[in-house]
Structures are given as structure tokens and as C-alpha cells.
């Protein structure tokens, strides 16, 4: 579905949306600004996962671990050390990527479901340690009241901070998606055997994809801390991993921007249905089932179909 090369025309809608997002905070209520920021953070997490799942065909089942590691790293740097604050912000994604490299290195020798399962067990190991190590990570209470630098201590300034990093990350992810590396990755997803045969090092490409994805998961984790000022072990729990996985499928995992849509839908549902009823997961479940039955390619896949029917054929060809 990707043709390689960057077409400037495709950027116009994205730039228009970004400009609108920049002018929104003074207009909309503060609560909505916050919700938008939550959507950005969640979207970035989902996008980073989709690099593995949608474009790489890797069963990255426990992606939330890296998000949590990024968040915990910056939280621990800010609360336990007196290093300049910037260090923690930079360390978050890097430590997350190192975890990604380590866990990925173990998992990459397996494929598909076995890969996912080994990752879940290694990830759960990290979760269990964070969950129980009261002296260091705060155990199941987590860490609260993390001192966030002054220049981002209002809702609006946080919003802009998160938005800027979200856009930069998305742009970098897009460049990766369109790069020769990204195309190779998609080729591996579609036919690993053939790629192996023409001399592509499949495992190494997948490992690099995992490291990149976990780096951006770490960025999302850091942004989460900026937004909420606290961390807790649920950030590394497998339920969140599955939720993010679902966001990718929901939005359309063969499309680039699909996960953003999936994240936006999930976060909005949780927020706005959650106002009316505590049973919002029931509603999410029903919507998911409706989607499975009626929009199997995800919301974004459906929209792309409607806009551009020729593209669909290309996607289908890719699937074979």
C-alpha cells in the first residue's frame, strides 16, 4: 500500500489539522484541552505499537511495558535524583528502548504467538517487580506529585508541549514508515520467507523496528508523566497492552494514521460514555463487536476505501 517516496500533497490535511489543534486551547474548555492531550499521548503509544504490529507483522503483545518504563524512568529521575530535569526526559525514551532491545532480543528468536507469549511473560516480570518493589518504585501505590518543570505546569502549556512532541514523533514515524527500512519491514510482514530468500536479515529488521517502537512508547510514557504528574503499575499491566493493540485494530492497522483514530475513539468513549454510566467497557465491547462484523478493516481502512476505492485493491494484494 505504500509506494515509497514522500508525497507533499498528503501532508496538507495533516498540516491543516495541526494548525487547528494549535489554535484550539484558548477556545475550548480546559477539560477538552486535557482530553485532547490524553488522546495525543495514547495515540503516540498506539502509533508506536503499530510500527511493530501493523507494518512489521510482529506480535508485540506487551507494548505497555515500555510505555510504563519510560514513564517510571522520568518519574524516578525527577523524584529521586537532583540531576537537571532534562536528563530524566531524555532518559525515559532511551531506557525504554534499552528494555525494548533486551526483551526484543530474547523474543525475536520466536515467531507469532510464541513471540507474543514470551514477551508477555518477560513484560509481566517487569510489571511484577515494579508492582512489588515498594522501596524503589512505590509498589502498587505508584509515585504521585512528581515535580514537573514550571514552564509546563498549566493545562495549556502542557497541551502545547505534548502536541509539539506528538507532531515531531508522528513526523519521524512517518519518515520511518516511508523509508526503505519501513518498506522492507512491510515486505517482511507480507512474506517473511521470500524476504529471507532475497537476503534480508528478517530478525534484525524486526528487532530494529521493536527498538524504534519502544523508544516512541517511552516518549509517550514521558508525555504521560508531563500530563498526569504521577505513575502507577497499571501503566505496565497487560490489560493496557491489549487495549492499545485493540486501538490499532480498531483504527485500521494497515493504515498509517489509523491508530490515532482508534486511540481517539477509545479515549473519547471512556471519557464521554463514562460520564453517563460506569459501564463504559460494556459499550466499548458492543462497539468492538459491531466493528468486527461491519468494518473489519478498521475505521480508517473504511474511510480510505470510501475516499479512494483503487487503493483498496492494493491493500488486498498486500494481504495475500
Amino acid at each position: 500500500m505504500s509506494k515509497g517516496g514522500i508525497n507533499l500533497k498528503t501532508f496538507w490535511p495533516a498540516i491543516a489539522i495541526a494548525v487547528i489543534l494549535f489554535f484550539l486551547p484558548p477556545i475550548i474548555p480546559r477539560f477538552y484541552t486535557y482530553i485532547l492531550a490524553v488522546i495525543f499521548v495514547t495515540s503516540l503509544l498506539a502509533m508506536s505499537l503499530n510500527l511493530c504490529v501493523g507494518h512489521g507483522g510482529i506480535f508485540q503483545f506487551h507494548h505497555a511495558v515500555f510505555y510504563g518504563v519510560g514513564a517510571y524512568t522520568v518519574a524516578l529521575f525527577l523524584t529521586k535524583t537532583s540531576l537537571p530535569r532534562g536528563v530524566g526526559f531524555i532518559a525515559g525514551p532511551i531506557i525504554a528502548a534499552i528494555f525494548g532491545l533486551l526483551i526484543g532480543w530474547f523474543c525475536i528468536r520466536l515467531t507469532k504467538l510464541y513471540f507474543g507469549m514470551l514477551q508477555i511473560s518477560l513484560g509481566s516480570l517487569v510489571w511484577a517487580i515494579v508492582f512489588r518493589w515498594y522501596g524503589f518504585t512505590g509498589g502498587d501505590d505508584g509515585i504521585h506529585g512528581i515535580p514537573i518543570p514550571e514552564f509546563i505546569d498549566s493545562t495549556n502549556s502542557r497541551y502545547y508541549f505534548i502536541l509539539i512532541f506528538f507532531i515531531i514523533s508522528l513526523f519521524v514515524l512517518y519518515l520511518i514508515f516511508k523509508s526503505p527500512f519501513g518498506t522492507t519491514l512491510q515486505a517482511i510482514r507480507d512474506n517473511p520467507e521470500r524476504c529471507e530468500a532475497i537476503g534480508i536479515n528478517v530478525k534484525r529488521h524486526q528487532l530494529v523496528a521493536i527498538v524504534i517502537a519502544t523508544f516512541f512508547a517511552g516518549v509517550a510514557g514521558v508525555l504521560f508523566v508531563v500530563l498526569e504528574g504521577s505513575v502507577f503499575p497499571d501503566l505496565l499491566f497487560w490489560v493496557l497492552s491489549l487495549e492499545v493493540f485493540i486501538m490499532c485494530l480498531l483504527g485500521g492497522w494497515f493504515t498509517f494514521a489509523g491508530p490515532v483514530l482508534g486511540a481517539a475513539i477509545t479515549v473519547s468513549l471512556r471519557t464521554f460514555v463514562g460520564v453517563y454510566t460506569e459501564y463504559w467497557t460494556l459499550i466499548l465491547g458492543v462497539i468492538l463487536i459491531l466493528l468486527i462484523f461491519f468494518l473489519p478493516e478498521g475505521v480508517m481502512g473504511f474511510i480510505l476505501d470510501k475516499i479512494n476505492p483503487e487503493k483498496k485493491e492494493i491493500i488486498e494484494k498486500d494481504d495475500e
Binding site: T281, L282, L284, G285, V286, L288
Partner: peptide
Amino acid sequence: LMLLLFTFALMLILGDLVKI
């Protein structure tokens, strides 16, 4: 993956039904 997604949806629904 769609079947997996379905069982996940089922988990969400059953979890809330139990709560209800």
C-alpha cells in the same frame, strides 16, 4: 486477529455484566 478481538470484546462485555 479478528477472533482474538472478538474474545476481547466478550471479555469487556462479560466483565461489565458481572459488575451489573
